Structure formats: C-alpha cells, structure tokens
Computed example of a mutant assay.
Amino acid sequence: MLVIAGLVLLTSISAYNGNVKFHDSFYYLKKQGFATGLGLVGMAVISRIDYHRWIPLAVPGYLLSILLGVAVLLFGEEYNGSKRWLSLGPVSFQPSEFAKVAVIVFLSWLIEKNIKKMGKFKSIVLTMLTILPIVGLVGASNLSTAIIILGIGAVMIFTASPKYLQFFWMIAGGAGFMTIFLALESYRLERIAIWRNPEKYEKGYQTLQGLYAIGSGGLFGRGLGNSVQKLGFLPEAQNDMIFSIICEELGLVGAGILIGVFLILIWRFFVIAAKAEDLTGALIATGAMAHMMIQIILNIAVVTNSIPNTGITLPFISYGGTSVVFLLLEMGLVLSVSGYSGRNQKKEMRPENGAGER
C-alpha cells in the first residue's frame, strides 16, 4: 500500500518539476519506478533466504559502510550543498542508506554475542561506541541520518538490556554529545535560529511554503493533483517536503490515513519481533521498526516545523532511488524473520509418528 501510494503521490507532486527541468512530466516517476521494481525483486529474494545466513557478513558489511562513508568525504558528489552521493559510472547512490541496514545486522550480531553482558552499563556504552565511527562519517554531511543510526542503536540496545535506569545516563550523554556536535558548525546553529523564526531568514522560505501548503489543505484537501505550492513555490517538493503537499492535496484526513498505514507497518514490526524464534531475529525486526519510526517522526516534525530542518525523506513516499531500494531490502530481512518463525511454529504443531491423529 505504501509503495503504490508513494508512486501515485510522486506522479502528482513531481510532474511540474519534471516538466520544467527535464521536459518530461514522468521523469521522477520513471526513475522511482525502476528503483522500486529493483527493490521489490530484492525484497522477494531476501525474504526467502534464512536471515541467519547474513550474520557472518555483519562485520564485513559494517566495515564496508565505513569505507563507503570515507569515500563520500573524499570523492562524493555535492547536491544542494550536501555531499552525500557516490557515482559509479551512470549510477549514483547514497551510502548512508546502506549504512542503516548494515548497522541493524551488525548490532544484531554484536548484541546477541554479548547478551549476557548487556545488563552492565560498561557493555552498553562499549556497544554504542562501536557505531560511532559510521555516525561520525555520516554526520559530517548528513546529520539527520546520523541521528537515525544513533536512534536505531539505542532502541536495539534498550530492547536487549534487562535494566532501564542506566539509559537515563546514556540519554544525558547523548544530549551532551549532540550539543557539542551542533556547536561545532555555525550552519547547524543557524538552522536552529531559522526554526525559531523562519520568517526572519531567507533560508526559512522553504519551511514557510511548506506550512502554507499544510494550512491551505484544510480537512479534505484541494484534491489529488491540484496543489498550488508544488508549482515552483516549494522547491524540490517531491523530496523531503513531500508530506506538506500531501496535506495540501489530501487534507488532514488523507494525511491521517497515510500516518495510520505507517502505524500499522510499525505495529507489524513489533509483532514479528515479539514472535521471532531467537534474539537475532527479534533484534533485526526491532532495528527495522526503530528505523521506520524515527525516520517518519523526523520527517513529519521537520515539515510541520516542530524541529529544525534536517533534510530527511519520508519512507516509501519521497523521491529517492537509493532510499526505496534499501528500505525494501530491509523489509525483505524482516519478512525472512517472520517467515522463519512461521515455519517453525507449523513444524511444532505437526504430530510426530502419527501421534495425536486420533
């Protein structure tokens, strides 16, 4: 439902920009459709592979994500002031999207390996420290994704730890780290100032146009395809700010339905994690749940100006080939956990040697 809704909404929202920039109203749809098809095939393949087979690749995959992060800093392409892309011939992709999945698999392996020590504060801190290299590399050019990776790590460790009080110290330490991190670059402090008073800054234009779109949508919206703000008023409407155009075209009711579908997906992650056969499977589903939940909250919070602008996409809806491919591959991993648990439950219910047939 989310994939189909994403393609339909993208067709409506990106047609103007596609026609103006590339003389093709379906330019963005074609690229997103190809990436979605690729991701669906990958999801179908991965869902049929036992998720335990990916665990031996956890460490190499994580190290590869670090190498790709270094490559972005050295050879990455800059777009709209952000260096986040690597180009391999005609194909470009964002290594930070791969890093999210790599961190989920890596932490699933690491936490399961050290599960008896997860009640100790020292073990929790050391586990969190292992993902700081990729957080630092990604955060150098993409703060929002770095926050998501940190959030994924915190939720997975919290799930595995039998003690909760010590997480208050982690939260305090994380808040201190983020304060220092924000203060290191002046543009991050500028974003906070823009967030507080967007009308006073030229860079607050996008935020204001997004709020105009949300406000003008009302309860039921202007109708699919009838947005005014997407006609050049809201720059790159098909990307991070797509939720504001959804509110304009479908209104509060349509946006609420979309959020409801996201909530159902998150609930299913929770159910799959709870019914997983082992800790590794539960952690994979939990990591995917944390990823989805944090990214949705951040995107909607940015669009509604509840937090400073961080430049994060809305899963399955915003334009971005790399994002949708790796999201669908991640869904394949969760489906593998679900399928493996279901097969084992069926085996347990079968009578052995004719017993129970009477």
Results as ranks from 00 to 15, higher is better:
53 R>A: 13
286 T>V: 14
167 F>S: 07
150 L>Q: 08
354 G>M: 13
229 Q>H: 06
292 M>H: 04
99 A>S: 10
18 G>P: 08
315 P>N: 02
148 I>P: 03
262 F>S: 06
288 A>T: 02
315 P>T: 01
143 L>T: 09
25 S>C: 08
225 G>N: 03
323 S>M: 03
193 A>T: 07
343 R>I: 11
313 T>L: 00
205 Y>M: 02
125 V>H: 07
173 G>H: 07
2 L>N: 04
316 F>A: 00
51 Y>N: 09
105 V>K: 01
270 F>P: 00
258 L>G: 06
353 N>H: 15
323 S>F: 05
116 K>H: 14
350 R>N: 14
166 Q>N: 12
119 G>V: 09
141 S>K: 10
69 G>A: 09
182 L>K: 06
317 I>V: 05
36 T>K: 07
322 T>G: 14
78 E>Y: 11
184 L>E: 10
21 K>D: 08
265 L>P: 00
162 P>H: 08
146 A>S: 15
54 W>C: 10
198 P>M: 04
317 I>W: 01
186 S>H: 12
123 S>E: 12
157 I>K: 07
215 G>I: 03
322 T>R: 04
254 G>K: 04
94 Q>D: 08
195 W>E: 01
203 K>V: 00
323 S>A: 14
147 I>P: 01
46 I>L: 13
231 L>K: 08
89 G>N: 13
201 Y>H: 11
99 A>Y: 03
321 G>I: 06
242 I>T: 03
161 S>H: 09
291 H>Q: 12
27 Y>R: 13
355 A>C: 12
348 E>R: 15
124 I>T: 12
349 M>R: 15
273 A>T: 10
246 I>F: 02
196 R>L: 12
322 T>A: 13
207 T>A: 03
334 V>E: 04
299 N>G: 03
177 F>Y: 15
207 T>F: 00
99 A>F: 03
342 G>W: 13
223 G>K: 05
135 V>A: 14
201 Y>L: 00
103 V>I: 09
245 I>C: 01
112 E>F: 09
290 A>C: 10
57 L>R: 01
64 L>K: 04
60 P>G: 12
133 P>W: 09
353 N>Q: 14
104 I>H: 06
306 S>E: 12
239 N>Y: 04
271 V>M: 11
326 F>L: 12
220 F>G: 05
131 I>F: 12
347 K>A: 15
130 T>L: 07
192 I>Q: 01
208 L>H: 00
276 A>P: 11
324 V>T: 12
102 A>G: 06
325 V>G: 11
273 A>C: 06
95 P>E: 02
106 F>K: 08
185 E>G: 09
195 W>Q: 00
228 V>S: 07
124 I>W: 05
264 I>P: 05
260 G>S: 11
125 V>Q: 08
256 G>L: 10
279 L>M: 15
191 R>A: 08
321 G>P: 05
338 S>W: 11
183 A>R: 13
35 A>W: 09
200 K>A: 13
208 L>I: 14
127 T>K: 03
186 S>W: 06
178 M>R: 01
51 Y>L: 10
153 G>Y: 08
328 L>H: 07
